[in-house]
Design a protein around this nucleic acid. Structure first.
Lengths: 165, 165
DNA sequence: GCAATATAATTCACTTGTAAACAATCCCGG
DNA sequence: CCGGGATTGTTTACAAGTGAATTATATTGC
């Protein structure tokens, strides 16, 4: 590739239309994770655009519902959301009346979160729809593939493989 | 901020320290992809903080190097970067002297990209380091696991499984 | 040739997410 | 009690990324 093209008038190449080669990038776990994640999110939202919550909001609300009395920061850590961002997300959810902040008297620095009835309702609605959307966005995978993928992702994270269900 | 309700209000819970339960969220492909992706990126950057490029910048430069004469938008599409964002990234790389924009005479709307010598050098440097960092961030996986994971991610995307070594 | 339309990239306004400084509170050793 | 230090959450400024409108060029139909 050192054809020493001078100036700005060199031919460079005929013009490879839209077939761009990724080279060995498709063997990079970090790259493939990003592409796959972006693609799956895109598919979920293009499949059904009228969702009442963004995916991140849903996970927050769901975990809040499953962990009454959990500190906001602890939930943020578990979901790998920065505290500063968590503050924004929770404020947004609170303004929409889906969660309540509650400062417990035994440690007035911390903030506990509780679902409102509206919050519980929205989460339940999303839970129902998301299973199908999640599966639909990865429809190329059969059940075994999906289980295997989840196992590998858990393994990366050092999480106990959830054989629960 | 609600006034701390005490007395008749429920105690919520003793306070589950930092053991937050995710429930069945760890069985959601979209959620697990996000968590895994964020974790892997974090690990790569905490492992070696003095990288000359961010991961996204590296992929752009690498693909530019592998596809001389490719339009900027075609590369953006392949990498799932929006054109408006691609403009920013390329401008940043151009300012640092790593790529050159080149408007071909046969279609003066489009922009071709070319690595500069400095760009080539930086990409080569990153290529060397990233293989190890990528593997290090997923050290919990053995070679078979990694190959299987990549196969499944390719399958989600509908990409031909690259068994090319 | 020329208007209408499509395409490529950019700009601008905005959302999402991060980093660093800050304020409030708790804890611990004198 | 009380001062230093740690913890928790918020604020502020910024970076990453998206979407709609804009500019410039190309293409197509008449």
């Amino acid at each position: 590739m050192t054809a020493a093209p001078q100036g700005s008038d060199d031919p460079v190449a005929p013009v490879p239309a839209d077939a761009v080669a990724l080279g060995d990038l498709d063997g990079s776990v970090s790259f493939m994770l990003r592409i796959a994640q972006v693609t799956v999110y895109d598919r979920i939202f293009s499949a059904e655009a009228d969702l009442p919550l963004k995916l991140g909001e849903h996970t927050v609300l769901k975990v809040v519902g499953d962990n009454p009395g959990a500190r906001q920061g602890a939930i943020a850590d578990k979901l790998m959301i920065k505290w500063s961002h968590m503050t924004k997300v929770v404020s947004g959810l609170e303004e929409r009346g889906l969660v309540e902040r509650y400062v417990p008297p035994q440690d007035r620095r911390s903030v506990f979160l509780r679902l409102t009835d509206a919050g519980r309702h929205v989460v339940a609605d999303m839970n129902l729809r998301l299973d199908a959307l999640d599966a639909g966005a990865t429809a190329a995978l059969d059940a075994d593939d999906r289980a295997e993928l989840l196992r590998l992702l858990h393994k990366i994270l050092g999480w106990p493989s959830a054989t629960s269900s």
